[in-house]
Design a binder for these strands. Structure first.
Length: 447
DNA sequence: TCTGGGGTCCTAGGACCC
DNA sequence: TCTGGGGTCCTAGGACCC
């Protein structure tokens, strides 16, 4: 039906419960187990497979301590986040998708848009081919949705995932107006990409509850009440392309770099805060250099928990740097100076972090008025050495003394799986008689 | 007791300028 | 009853995403 129309068609392919699925790939013994993956610090459940969802009936980012007892009772398998592993699996997923379209936009770690315009095949069939190939090459389960705009492709993907009738592939371009409308009448407006919980309430208040109703709403009036983003969403729901596919190879330059984290346990001492801030400054600078950027401002914050309603304290301040830099020493110095100003004793701090802003490309930086730049060759060489050693021997091999050795504030990662793909010594061993470092079995194909 | 981290974009309002 | 008006830039806050 859509075979000889030249109308734009996008696909959205995404991995089902990405993190949980990644863990399962390396643990075939957990094939039929309920699985939950926790956020940094083991605080919240951020991913769970269908089995765990059915058993625990949890919501996104629910605090794990609320579920832990019940989870244990039901035999739920728990993992801390293992981002190195998920990133590696993500690359394989993306590489596989490139076989099916010349234009692929990597939207997130587990989602890609594909340009399907002019594909001369029945889309549902093609979707199943994509799905089967990804499964075969990476062991990851995915769903595929097709639509005439990104917003519709997202919605189609949602249906493919949630409504068994589609068997994992949903093509909205193949429906006539009546069929489409009856499908959308049964979808809540919050299922639309860009409509979050706040907007849902506001839209409900003006009588818009379903996607079908939102699609028929007057864009001009919606714009006045809810802004340009919602107006654009309505047009996209009607098959107009307002969001283009962005398949540029060069990732967009970051506008800010943030490093922050909750503490493993509450801290009150300035010494511990300083160590944590030094750690975040180091981390942020490393990422800054990786992107070839300089920062102009440093922002630091420390706070106790927003759940401590009566006593909530948040100290934060920004400082402009004399000239743009990516030097860990200089930025740490600035961050620690800020901490001195925002630290207040006798508070049980829960979280700290820094944000680098005013980012500019490293190349072509002008000297400041005095003809002085912070990035002299000595500093440059030091940073190159620092990054080189940490890359070669592992993160944190070389670090500032201000970061401390005995980190009482470090995060918890009690249930982390091994670094299967990034560290030779952590490769899976199927047969314990095989000497360390010689993996066998079905994981071998992933190497 | 325990409650993620890293981003983006838009808008409103104040400061400032002529 | 009046206190100019219009433009730009910056920032804080709100909303969204995964």
């Amino acid at each position: 039906m859509s075979t000889h129309s030249n109308k734009t068609v996008y696909a959205l392919a995404d991995v089902n419960s990405m993190y949980a699925s990644c863990e399962q790939v390396f643990r075939p013994d957990l094939k039929n187990s309920p699985i939950v993956v926790l956020s940094n610090n083991d605080g919240c459940a951020i991913a769970q497979n269908q089995l765990a969802k059915d058993l625990l009936g949890m919501h996104m980012a629910q605090p794990w301590h609320e579920l832990e007892a019940e989870g244990k009772r039901l035999g739920v398998k728990v993992f801390s986040s293992n981002y190195e592993l998920y990133a590696e699996m993500s690359n394989r997923f993306i590489d596989t998708l490139r076989e099916f379209s010349p234009r692929v936009e990597v939207y997130s770690i587990d989602e890609c848009f594909l340009d399907m315009t002019g594909i001369n095949k029945p889309l549902t069939e093609y979707g199943h081919l994509i799905r089967d190939t990804v499964k075969q090459w990476t062991s990851l389960p995915i769903c595929v949705g097709f639509g005439h705009s990104k917003t519709l492709a997202k919605l189609a993907n949602h249906c493919a995932k949630k409504q068994p009738i589609w068997k994992g592939v949903c093509d909205l371009t193949n429906l006539n107006e009546t069929e489409l409308n009856s499908l959308l009448e049964n979808l809540q407006v919050s299922k639309v990409w860009g409509i979050g919980s706040r907007l849902e309430v506001k839209l409900n208040n003006v009588g818009i509850h379903t996607v079908a109703r939102l699609r028929k709403a007057n864009p001009k009036r919606i714009r006045d009440a809810f802004g340009v983003l919602v107006e654009r969403t309505i047009k996209e729901l009607n098959g107009e392309v307002w969001l283009d596919l962005d398949d540029s190879e060069i990732p967009l330059e970051a506008k800010q770099v943030l490093s922050s984290r909750s503490f493993g346990e509450r801290v009150t001492e300035l010494k511990d805060i300083n160590e944590a801030i030094s750690f975040h400054a180091t981390n942020a600078c490393q990422r800054l250099r990786k992107q070839g950027l300089y920062a102009n401002t440093v922002y630091a914050f420390i706070q106790n928990s927003p759940f401590d309603k009566a006593t909530f304290y948040s100290g934060n301040e920004t400082i402009g740097l004399p000239s743009p830099t990516d030097d860990t020493l200089r930025i740490t110095q600035a961050a620690l100076w800020l901490v001195k100003r925002i630290y207040s004793p006798n508070i049980y701090y829960q979280k700290a972090g820094i944000m680098l802003g005013g980012l500019v490309p490293k190349e072509g930086q002008q000297l400041d008025l005095l003809g002085y730049t912070d990035r002299d060759s000595k500093s440059e060489n030091l940073m190159i050495a620092l990054d080189g050693i940490n890359k070669k021997y592992g993160r944190g091999t070389l670090k500032l003394a201000s970061e401390g050795i005995d980190k009482t504030w470090r995060m918890r990662r009690s249930f982390k799986s091994p670094n299967y793909m990034g560290d030779f010594l952590e490769l899976p061993l199927i047969n314990s008689n095989i000497p360390l470092g010689f993996p066998l079995g079905e994981n071998l194909k992933l190497l």
